[in-house]
């Protein structure tokens, strides 16, 4: 079966099922035994890698939060560039903070991203909501060992605030 045959088959509206060989078998030979469990020594080495990057990331995170604070006002006042930069930073934080032992910072950043993503079609960003989120991120960064109940309540309150604001904006838009 040549490459051209495969493409022709697809053009005729046919379905083709290909059995793809295992990379492990292709690279290591047909008689390899598949791993049945994760090697704890390797996992430890991976965790050490994360730990070694943690302090460097903490510095960067602190700078990113400072930048979020600077961008809050212009983003809420309609400056598209600032809003885009604010989203990029929040998106970066939501993807990385949890891996580096800052899950709460990541969850607040995730909520801020959710709010901005939901606003693509329904209107301008609200200053107070942006500020509440950025403040929550700043607090979570400053006090990583804060009361988990308080953190959960803050998360829930922000989620509710986002929902209420978005519903209100949708209704106002008709």
């Amino acid at each position: 079966m040549s490459e051209n045959d495969l493409i022709k088959a697809s053009q005729k509206g046919e379905t083709r099922i290909l059995k793809v060989p295992s990379i492990a078998k292709r690279k290591l030979g047909q008689d390899i035994t598949d791993p049945v469990r994760l090697d704890p020594r390797v996992l430890e080495k991976m965790q050490d890698t994360i730990k070694s990057l943690e302090s460097k990331y903490a510095e960067a995170l602190s700078e990113q939060v400072t930048r979020l604070i600077e961008l809050s006002d212009p983003a809420a006042n309609g400056d598209a560039r600032s809003a885009a930069d604010l989203y990029t930073i929040a998106h970066d934080i939501r993807g990385l903070a949890g891996t580096f032992g800052r899950p709460l910072v990541g969850r607040f950043a995730n909520l801020l991203c959710t709010y901005i993503e939901g606003h693509d079609n329904i209107g301008p960003l609200e200053n107070s909501i942006i500020r509440f989120h950025v403040e929550a991120i700043r607090e979570a960064l400053k006090n990583p060992d804060s009361d988990p109940n308080l953190a959960s309540e803050t998360l829930r309150a922000l989620e509710n605030l986002i929902m209420a604001t978005m519903n209100q904006t949708r209704l106002a838009a008709g």
């Binding site: 088959a9 509206g13 379905t15 099922i17 290909l18 793809v20 295992s22 990379i23 492990a24």
Partner: peptide
Amino acid sequence: VVCYPRAFIETD
């Protein structure tokens, strides 16, 4: 993904 490949499907 390295050890357990899945069948590959081609349709239109």
